[in-house]
Amino acid sequence: MPVSIVPVTTSPSAGSERRSELTADLFDRIAATDDPSERARLTDEVVLANLGVADAIARRYRRRGTSADDLEQVARLALVKAARSFRPDRGHDFLSYAVPTIRGEVRRWFRDHGWVVRPPRRVQEAQLRMTPYAAEFALQHGRDPRAADYVRDLELDEATVTEALAVNACYSPDSLDRPVDPQGDAGPSLGDRLVGEDSAFERCEARHMLEPLIARLAPRDRLVLRLRFAEGLTQREVGEHIGVTQMQVSRIIARVLGQLRVELGVDLPVGSLAA
């Protein structure tokens, strides 16, 4: 169910220190009351006070082919979960608990819902670590990170980094209906550029299976097949070449093809013999 939360009505300039103080005070009040409705109300205020944190985490994963609203909802739900389960008596600041919780929920959502074409799990997890790292690196260094930067700072192996960099399109691959020319809508689409079924592959496979079978044929049978299908002679011309009638050539071809079909257990593409 979508989470509809109205931002807290505090000054937009309120900094992290003010938010931390407000959050700590709210949790103190939660611990001091036994009224369930009051605890729920105060927990809602914790969520409102830290809403900007959840939204900021969601923004780091935008522009990945997924809905910004979906990301925001996932992050906010994770914030609610963190606020309800946080225990101040364990001596931790709320955000030190909430931020990993929110980030983990967003990453899990990406892992389960964000991929159109699903790569291996290790690549998914590496890619999700690399995305926020790349944004921070670009801000600090004024350029995109190279593979070596990911390997060094994230302690990933080079092969995984290479695969992860290559799977960006798995989030949202181009539609086959997208025009090849982005400036015009009337031109050919990506789908139009895809080749259809190529019978050459089928013929190649058939020839590969036929080679050992043809090698076992009688010399005259092999000659008839070569003349008829490889050199393209007519049955009459084949008969003249080997000294038999056209009818005999027809019978030889029918017998040999029938034999090959039985041994292969499949129909023979005629073109497969033209080699």
Rank of each mutant, 00 (worst) to 15 (best):
L217R: 15
W109Y: 12
G15F: 05
R178W: 07
T23N: 10
A78W: 00
P88T: 03
G239C: 10
R152G: 03
A135Q: 10
V256C: 09
G265S: 12
D149E: 12
V74H: 12
G232N: 01
H241W: 06
L156Y: 12
R90V: 10
P219V: 13
A230N: 11
D44E: 14
A82H: 09
R121Q: 04
E38A: 14
P88K: 13
E237H: 08
G142E: 12
V74P: 06
S250G: 14
T9E: 08
D69E: 11
D153K: 03
V238N: 03
I242Q: 01
P119H: 03
A14H: 05
P100H: 08
R108I: 00
S189K: 07
A147V: 07
D192G: 03
A78I: 00
R216C: 10
E38D: 06
Q246I: 01
R222V: 13
P100K: 07
A215T: 15
Q127D: 04
E21Q: 13
Q248C: 02
S67P: 04
G196F: 10
N50G: 04
E263M: 13
S189N: 02
P212S: 13
M1C: 05
V256H: 12
R207D: 15
A126N: 03
R146L: 14
R220T: 14
A82Q: 05
R178Y: 09
L194E: 11
T131R: 00
D157T: 13
A148K: 03
W115K: 01
N50H: 03
D25Y: 08
R87I: 11
A126M: 07
I30R: 15
L71V: 13
L257F: 06
D89T: 09
R236D: 12
P88W: 13
A215I: 08
E205M: 12
P2N: 13
L217D: 10
D153T: 13
M247G: 15
G114E: 05
D69G: 11
F110K: 00
L213H: 05
P100D: 09
E163M: 10
R121E: 05
L225V: 09
V123M: 01
E45L: 07
D34C: 03
L264G: 10
S13Y: 09
D221P: 13
S96Y: 04
E38I: 10
D25V: 01
A159D: 15
S13F: 15
S175A: 10
R39K: 08
T160C: 03
P36V: 01
R107P: 00
I5Y: 11
G52A: 14
R84Y: 09
V180P: 01
R222S: 15
G91Q: 13
E202M: 04
G114D: 01
K81W: 07
G239P: 08
T245W: 03
R236V: 11
E21D: 09
S16W: 08
G196R: 15
A148Q: 08
T162G: 02
S96H: 06
R19M: 05
A82G: 07
